[in-house]
Design a protein around this nucleic acid. Structure first.
Lengths: 128, 128
DNA sequence: CGTTCATGTTTACAGACGTAGTCGATTACG
DNA sequence: CGTAATCGACTACGTCTGTAAACATGAACG
């Protein structure tokens, strides 16, 4: 097993908000990240700084020096994060099968017409 | 505001394992819950007792006295929990739209042939 | 009746998380 | 050059979580 399992530390919900900002645009300074998220979540710059440090510690974000300060960029891709989180949910709640999740979403009427149309299109593609 | 919004406390992951046992069969004694989950998770009975207490405090589980001890039953339905958790994920990661989640699952090849067939069948039903 | 056993209650404690203040260094401005 | 603004690092602290031991109490058994 040369490959370290490397189960990376989970990203918490607050940290995730910071990641979203960086996924949208990067590299950013702590200041800029704050401009993106502090309003929405009612955070202070100090909070963002803490979250960024923790994300760096978790190796989810990397820094590059820019004079006196740092520029922050995501080190993991959004799609990987989203994939892992989705899988966790499907595993935990639906025994690892995606169909029951879909059935659930359908039954609870969380699917709009548009969703259904899109999914049909995707299915068509998958079957090709 | 007579109706408290009553945003019920979140159920943690460990607590969720206990809930699953109770959803499968209930009422159960703490002992019986432990028989269901302690093996899998490597817990002691004490841990299960703590989790049950916390679930009772969170009003996710109710008790009924049975002589000296209690019988525990879920107070919230599995479908409600699953619904809330699914919605949380979809909101957090896919802007509230289910189609992107589906697309993601499809692209990451987490959909088996069976899943696809099932989903097609569901779609057909939905369109009727 | 005294001891043991089962069971709920209370207490414990480390680590993660949310939120933020303080400190020391560096930069920039006057 | 001296002082103010800025920035990351360190510290703080209450809550939640995971995990469990200690304790109290009542039942059961000998």
């Amino acid at each position: 097993m040369s490959e370290s399992p490397e189960q990376p530390d989970r990203i918490s919900e607050a940290e995730h908000a910071v990641m979203e900002a960086l996924w949208q645009r990067s590299p950013l300074t702590a200041q800029e990240v704050c401009e993106e998220v502090c309003g929405l979540r009612g955070w202070s710059l100090a909070t963002v700084k803490t979250l960024l440090s923790r994300l760096v510690a978790k190796q989810a974000v990397e820094t590059e020096p820019d004079g006196k300060r740092f520029l922050y960029s995501p080190r993991i891709e959004r799609i990987a994060y989203v994939g892992a989180e989705s899988r966790r949910l499907v595993d935990r709640l639906f025994g690892g099968r995606a169909a029951p999740l879909f059935a659930h979403l359908a039954q609870s009427e969380q699917l709009t017409e548009d969703d259904i149309a899109e999914i049909e299109a995707l299915l068509k593609e998958l079957k090709s």
